[in-house]
C-alpha cells in the first residue's frame, strides 16, 4: 500500500511540476505565439516595417474596392478602434466579405498601409441556416462578431 501511495504521489507531483513549467513557458512566450497583429497592435507594439507578418481583424463595411486592373483590391481591416488599409492582388477565399473576419499575410509599409501577399478568411463560431440569419437581422437581434475574433475580444 505504501509503495502504491508513493508512486501515486510521485505521479501527481510530476504532473504538477510539469503543469507549472508549461504555464511559465507559455506565459514567457505568449507574445511570440501571436499568429496575427490587430490594427491596434500595429500602433502600439512597434511592429517592424517591411517584414513578413500577419494582421487580422474585420473587413470594414463598404471599404472593399476593386482597382481598374480587376485583380487588385483595396480594403480596410478594423478592430473597432483602429483600422489599416490593405492592398492585395490575387484570389480571395469564399468567406471573404465585408464585416467578416480576415487574416492577411504580407508586409507593413512605411506609410502605415499593408501590402498583402495572401488573404485568409477567419470565420466566427456561429452556425445557422440562412433563413435564421435573415430572421435575426430583420428582428434586430443580430449580434455583430467581436472585433478580431477571439483573443482580442477579451480585452
Amino acid at each position: 500500500m505504501t509503495r502504491k501511495r508513493r508512486r501515486l504521489t510521485a505521479v501527481l507531483a510530476g504532473l504538477a511540476t510539469l503543469g507549472l513549467a508549461t504555464f511559465l513557458v507559455l506565459t514567457a512566450f505568449s507574445d511570440n505565439l501571436v499568429f496575427f497583429y490587430s490594427p491596434s497592435d500595429l500602433k502600439t507594439k512597434h511592429v517592424p516595417f517591411e517584414r513578413q507578418l500577419r494582421i487580422g481583424g474585420l473587413v470594414e463595411e463598404h471599404s472593399v474596392k476593386r482597382e481598374a486592373d480587376g485583380k487588385t483590391i483595396d480594403f480596410r481591416v478594423t478592430d473597432g478602434s483602429n483600422t489599416v488599409a490593405v492592398t492585395f492582388t490575387g484570389g480571395l477565399p469564399d468567406l471573404f466579405r465585408e464585416g467578416q473576419g480576415v487574416v492577411a499575410e504580407g508586409v507593413l509599409r512605411r506609410d502605415g498601409s499593408f501590402l498583402a501577399s495572401n488573404v485568409l478568411a477567419k470565420h466566427d463560431e456561429k452556425y445557422m441556416p440562412p433563413e435564421v440569419a435573415d430572421a435575426l437581422k430583420r428582428s434586430g437581434h443580430w449580434q455583430e462578431t467581436s472585433a478580431s475574433g477571439n483573443a482580442e475580444a477579451r480585452k
Binding site: F35, F36, G101, Y127, S148, G149, N150, A151
Partner: peptide
C-alpha cells in the same frame, strides 16, 4: 493547450461553438 488555444492566442481557427 489545445482546448484553450483559441482563447489564449490570436488564431485563424475560430473559438469554441
Amino acid at each position: 493547450i489545445i482546448k484553450f488555444s483559441v482563447d489564449w492566442w490570436n488564431t485563424l481557427h475560430q473559438p469554441a461553438s
